[in-house]
């Protein structure tokens, strides 16, 4: 408080003494303290702990006990054993991101330009699922896709369902991921489309671009910040998700890396290092992808 007050004095009156200048200088750092403390306590410290666990070994004979021996082979072992699940995570997350984009973009476009007085209603429809628990929503999907539910029974009646059921397939997992992260795709795109002046789109038409060309050359590039944010906000949590694969997937070929981490943490005695190593690998890959992605489509390119 004193520092703040000093800073105010320093701002409003002519700077006389040295101490006032100092007050002004340290204020921004003081303001950073709560945020930094929070970050250190709940991000840096757990990260360091996780990093340590990932290079520990289990104590023979005492499940749940570990000691640090710089066992970097945890990473090699985890990767060589669980690369299919890791790969599948990115594949499913990628598919879900593409699906969410294909569904979310037209939805956001309709909300921004065509909805008129229905805009608020549509907005509520997009946001409403947030008011229910993520897991309950996914369980509801299980009911919808159940064998005796409307979709599966119709497809079965038409002999269009090769395996006889939708749940326990990768399609159900990707559909669940798409559904659960759709709002994260739609809302950022909507907010960047909403800022597009309709006159600019008209200008595209006026300058000899037909509807599609105008979309491709004008509307889409202008909404890229939203697309960028939306794809990241969909892809990143989807890649780490395990609920959809757990509730909608099968036990053979749809488990994702999140399921492995969960299982190693909670069900396999002595699995903590593997789980931690996998968590770090997942994080590292996502960071690398993020870096490459923003370098390629980065915001400095847009506006």
């Amino acid at each position: 408080m004193t520092a703040l007050a000093q800073a105010q004095i320093a701002n409003t009156t002519a700077v006389e003494g040295d101490h006032r200048v100092k007050g002004r200088r340290i204020t921004p750092y003081l303001l950073l303290i709560p945020g930094l403390l929070w970050l250190v306590m709940f991000f840096v410290v757990p990260m360091v702990q996780l990093a340590i666990v990932s290079i520990e070994s289990k104590f023979p004979g005492y499940p749940g006990y570990y000691y640090l021996d710089w066992n970097v082979f945890n990473y090699a072992n985890a990767l060589s054993e669980f690369w299919p699940q890791l790969l599948r995570s990115f594949l499913f997350a990628g598919l879900a991101t593409i699906m969410a984009f294909l569904i979310g973009y037209p939805l956001a476009y309709a909300m921004a330009f065509k909805a008129g007085r229905w805009r608020n209603v549509m907005m509520i429809c997009v946001v409403a699922p947030f008011f229910t628990s993520f897991i309950l929503r996914t369980i509801a999907w299980r009911q919808i896709l159940a064998d005796e539910g409307p979709i599966a029974s119709t497809l079965n009646a038409l002999h269009l369902l090769p395996g006889g059921h939708i749940t326990e397939t990768w399609v159900a997992v990707v559909a669940g991921l798409t559904y659960n992260f759709l709002p994260f795709m739609t809302l950022p795109i909507y907010s960047s489309l909403e800022r597009v002046d309709p006159k600019v789109i008209e200008a595209g038409g006026d300058l000899y671009a037909n509807g599609l060309t105008t979309f491709r050359r004008v509307t889409l590039p202008m909404s890229m910040p939203g697309v960028l944010a939306g794809t990241l906000m969909t892809f990143i949590p989807a890649a780490g998700d395990y609920v959809n694969a757990d509730l909608l997937g099968s036990d053979i070929d749809t488990k994702m890396v999140g399921n492995v981490i969960e299982s190693q943490f909670f069900r396999v005695p002595g699995g903590f290092p593997t789980a931690a190593a996998l968590s770090f690998t997942l994080m590292a890959i996502i960071l690398l992808m993020l870096f490459a992605y923003t370098r390629r489509f980065g915001t400095e390119e847009l506006l």
């Binding site: 709940f42 996780l50 903590f272």
Partner: peptide, 8 residues
Amino acid sequence: AAAALLAA
């Protein structure tokens, strides 16, 4: 994270 914290 918390589980890791304590396991470390």
